[in-house]
């Protein structure tokens, strides 16, 4: 590898390292690389970091040196998620984007998204690929209950709520696919690395 270092490494306590990289795509690429190369308890990608928990620090450092940040990320399969676009925040998102509700649906279904990382709840995947200019603010105060299967936007992320929970994301619609099933391997439908496309269906 030539050029400036593509990462910065900082300890997160005595048994974990946090690796800072440029963006979500780099974090995903590094996490996939480390998962193959290092014997760790957990390898957790974030928005622009990878947490490596329970691995030998020297092994992590060595493995990171072998990572090629310029390599094409080897993304997983494409999952199509059917969505009924009847969410409570469609009009609000149309306002932010300066377009019609119909155009919100057309834009959301045109996106090529990638599951960058999970968090918040089992199977809750942060889907990257929403352009910066389509960033939408979260609700000022979260809803006490967002139903399972809600398809939503916040910032430059899209997501589907796997289970009912409180939530502050902008709701576009709903899907009836199972996002989380512990009998499946992996149980998360949208595990990190999965490519995602939303498709409009009639109620």
């Amino acid at each position: 590898m030539t050029g400036p270092a593509a990462y910065r490494m900082v300890a997160s306590g005595p048994s974990a390292l946090l690796l800072e990289v440029a963006d979500a795509a780099a974090a995903l690429s590094l996490a996939e690389h480390l998962r193959e190369e290092v014997d760790a308890t957990d390898v957790v990608p974030g928005a622009c970091t990878v947490l490596v928990d329970g691995a030998e620090p020297s092994a992590v450092a060595g493995a990171v040196e072998r990572w090629d940040p310029t390599a094409d990320p080897d993304h997983g399969p494409l999952v199509e998620v059917p969505v009924v676009y009847d969410g409570a925040d469609l009009a609000a998102v149309a306002d932010v984007w300066g377009c019609t509700v119909r155009e919100v649906v057309e834009r959301h279904t045109s996106l090529e998204l990638v599951s960058a990382f999970c968090g918040f709840a089992p199977g809750f995947a942060y889907l990257s690929g929403v352009p910066d200019e389509w960033s939408v603010p979260r609700l000022e105060s979260p809803r006490p209950r967002v139903p399972a299967g809600s398809v939503a936007l916040a910032g430059t992320w899209s997501a589907v709520y796997p289970t009912a929970s409180p939530g502050g994301w902008r709701l576009l619609g709903r899907t009836d696919v199972a996002l989380w099933d512990t009998r499946r391997t992996p149980p998360a439908l949208l595990a990190p690395g999965t490519r995602v496309a939303f498709r409009e269906v009639r109620p």
């Binding site: 996490a31 999970c118 918040f120 089992p122 998360a188």
Partner: peptide, 9 residues
């Protein structure tokens, strides 16, 4: 159940 943190578990 360590080992599933990347899935949000």
């Amino acid at each position: 159940r360590p080992g599933h943190a990347h899935l949000g578990v």
